[in-house]
Structure formats: C-alpha cells, structure tokens
Amino acid sequence: MSRTAPIPDDGPLLRLAHAVHDGFVLAGRHLTHLGRTPEKIVTGTLTPAVIAVALGYLFDGVVTVGAVPDYTAFIMPGVLAQVALYGIGTTALGVVADLDNGITDRFRSLPISRSSVLVGHTLADLVVTAVNLVLVALVGFAIGWRIDAPAAHVLAALGLLLLFGYAMLWVGVLLGLALRTPDTVNSVSGLVLVVFSFLSTSFIPVEALPSGVAQVAAWNPVTALVTAVRDLLGGPGGVVAADPPLPVEHPLPVLFAAVALVLVVAVPIGTRAHHRAAAR
C-alpha cells in the first residue's frame, strides 16, 4: 500500500534535542516580531518605571514606611518583580493572537513536538523580560538607586528574577487559553499584577502590614522573590521583627518551591490545553 519504508521512531533523547532545537527556532520567530514592533518592549517597562519614579523618587523623603532607611533601594527589587509579573500579560496576549492565526495550524501539521510552540513562545518572552529588567534597573539608577553588592550577587539576583519570570510566563499561557480574548486578558493580567505586587512586601515591610494581611503577603511568592533579591543586592530588608514569617526568613526554598509548583502544574496543563484549543 505504501511507497515509503517505515521510518524508525526517534529515541527519547533525540526527541528532546529536537524539541529544544524547535523551541529555539520558534523563539527566533517571536524575536523577529519584536524587531518589527519594538514598542512592545516599552509597554513592558512603563508600569514598573512609573511606580519606581512615583514611589522611589516623588514619595521618598516625604513618606516614612516602617523602619526603612533608604526607600528607593527598598522598593527596587519589588519594582523589578513587577516586570516579571508583567510577563503574564505579554505571553497571554501572544498565545491568544496565535490561536486566531492560521499559522498555528501550519505548525501543528509539521512533525515537531507538541510543546515546542509554547516553549518557543515563552523563551522569546523571557528575553523580553530580561531586556525590560535592565531598562527598569536603569530607570532606578536614574532616580538614585545604587547597588552595593558583588557582581556574582547581582547576576544571581537577575537569575532569580528570570526564573520567577519564566514561571509567570506559563501562568500567562494558562490565562490566555482560559480567557481567549485580548480585552479580558488585559484587564485580568493588570489586576494580577497589582494584587500580587502590592499584597507582598515589595513596597511595605512585613512588620508594617496589618497582621491578617501580613500572613497573606508573607506567603505570596513575590515576597520570597523580593526578599531574596534584597538580600543579594544588600539593600535594606527592614527585617527587624523578632520572629519574621518563614518566607521572609528563608526566601530561597519558598521561591524555588513556588516556581517548581507553577511549572509542574502549568507546563503539562498548558501544553494539553493549547493542543485542544487549536484542534477546533
């Protein structure tokens, strides 16, 4: 019946190698898009930059928050965490736009791994997050933020922000697949950004928060991220409470656990949901 000789299936290692290769090739596609629409980068830096200027520059010296000596240095890790949170919306919008486009069918008709389309998407958005982190840090320097830490610590802090940011991109995949329209994605991702950012110790030290809220804020993964970055960058932690909550005392294990949990849940569910959503 058939003209072709049976093709042997690839082994698992070769398949993984192909999936990674395809992920990078597809990431290249998104980065080429970005080259044509550079304004997308600017929008990602806008909200965090405004917060940095408003709180760090305008309010600094007028408002005293808790026992924090240098408020700008205190909030900059939180501002950078906002950049990571902003990625949720970026990826969600990208996923929604691609589903409405015939090109998803084309990719699905190719002999490539199911996950490579989303891997490519999130890798490209991670590059966007990295660029935005640098741009927002520059805004911080412009308003007087100074880092007093060895280069290795600065790189480690950047690594933590990107790790957390990557997990958020997969949250964005789920959000996009659940909401399916750009309008709802915009409003929900905006809300997520504000709630997760302000209901953490990004801008207010934990001991200055009302006790009920403090518990919630302490276990918000953004708090673990911000605390870990503050520790690395040598900024004022404001940790003077005698008995700090666990995520504030040991931010790294809490952060890694949160990132692992998000990825373990979101990657398989997102991949399957994306496959189903495209099969209509």
Binding site: H33, I103, D105, S109, P111
Partner: peptide
Amino acid sequence: RRVRRHIGLTGQYATVDGLL
C-alpha cells in the same frame, strides 16, 4: 506524527506569518 512528515497543508486563510 509520522503522517506529518509526508504532508503539506495550506488553509483557507493563508497560514503564513504576516510579520516575517
């Protein structure tokens, strides 16, 4: 997966990337 090595597809909406 193996079928996909032998087929080419064009949709009724052009399945190409407009930004590239």
